[in-house]
């Protein structure tokens, strides 16, 4: 008798990256088109998220229709700038450097109580200001680069790096961005290096978060789908890791929404009056 053994099903994080790449290329083209844009603008940090976004944009719009902006501060790692340049060169995208030191320090000098953490946020928001200003100058739409893991953890500066109007990577976990980066030919040096926000000298994401992306992403996927903790523990994760993931997600829900408005009427925007963001009626 032939005996065959089946495998129990489970959640899958591995994606078909060629299909994902094709889909995101179409996403970029269509979301730019109805907004009336042909060009895209990407703030490149030297990390894998912005390099992957740049690769997608170059494929979707043509490299000549994309601009890579490096926005270093004097405290930023020189390696970040070098890797940002490497990414732009890899995809043939025009590269521009605008140093934000003066913008940030001009304000920081007014506040002797400035902390490294606060200054990190000021840097992210200064970058947002430059990105949106140059969007007008170049008539190019800013493309967001935040991945799903950092969005779920609230590991970004509110109204800073989350500000661009469209984001191709926002529903991909960090580990999935790595997979997509490989598919798109992002330079190995960028894919392999430890992820860092580079807002505070020496920081790395995984130290800040207290667990690795590879482990966090599996916990997140199960938590979002409603699996109980004991199930996730059965997959080999500790109660402390699971607790950390839930803590980060649950203290940052506000960062994934527009600011809270006091509701007084039955036409309160986004509470009662609900329209998708691409909604337009034809006017006579």
């Amino acid at each position: 008798m032939k005996k065959l053994y089946g495998v129990p099903g489970g959640e899958v994080l591995e994606l078909d990256y060629p299909a994902v790449a094709d889909y995101l290329v179409q996403f970029l083209r269509r979301e730019l088109a109805w907004r009336g844009f042909e060009k895209g603008l990407v703030a490149v940090s030297g990390g894998v998220d912005s390099a992957t976004t740049l690769a997608l944009a170059a494929r979707a719009l043509g490299p000549e229709n994309v601009r890579a902006l490096a926005l270093p501060h004097a405290e930023s790692s020189p390696e970040s700038l070098a890797d940002a340049r490497l990414a732009a060169e890899a995809f043939g995208v025009p590269f521009e450097v605008i140093d934000i030191t003066e913008m940030v320090e001009g304000y920081a000098r007014l506040r002797p109580d400035m902390t490294p953490h606060r200054k990190g946020n000021v840097k992210a928001r200064a970058r947002m200001i430059v990105l949106f200003d140059l969007s007008v100058a170049y008539h190019a739409l800013p493309l967001g680069t935040g991945n799903k893991t950092e969005r779920l953890f609230g590991y970004f500066t509110w109204h800073g790096d989350d500000a661009p109007p469209i984001n191709p990577l926002g529903d991909l976990y960090k580990t999935q961005v790595w997979g997509l980066a490989g598919e798109l030919g992002v330079p190995e040096k960028i894919v392999q290096k430890p992820p860092t926000a580079d807002l505070i000298p020496g920081q790395t994401d995984e130290e800040d978060l207290g667990l690795s992306y590879a482990r966090a992403d599996v916990i997140l996927e199960h938590y979002l789908k409603g699996y109980p903790d004991r199930y996730v523990e059965g997959l080999g994760f500790s109660p402390a890791e699971i607790r950390r993931v839930k803590e980060l997600v649950n203290k940052t829900h506000y960062k994934r929404h527009l600011p809270t408005v006091a509701v007084l009427s039955s036409t309160a925007i986004n509470e009662f009056y609900l329209r998708p963001l691409d909604f337009r009626i034809e006017l006579e």
Binding site: Y273, L274, R275, P276, D278, F279, I281
Partner: peptide, 12 residues
């Protein structure tokens, strides 16, 4: 009209 209209169904 397109599929996702939310409350805009009433207008369209």
């Amino acid at each position: 009209t397109g599929y996702f209209l939310q409350g805009g169904v009433r207008e369209l």
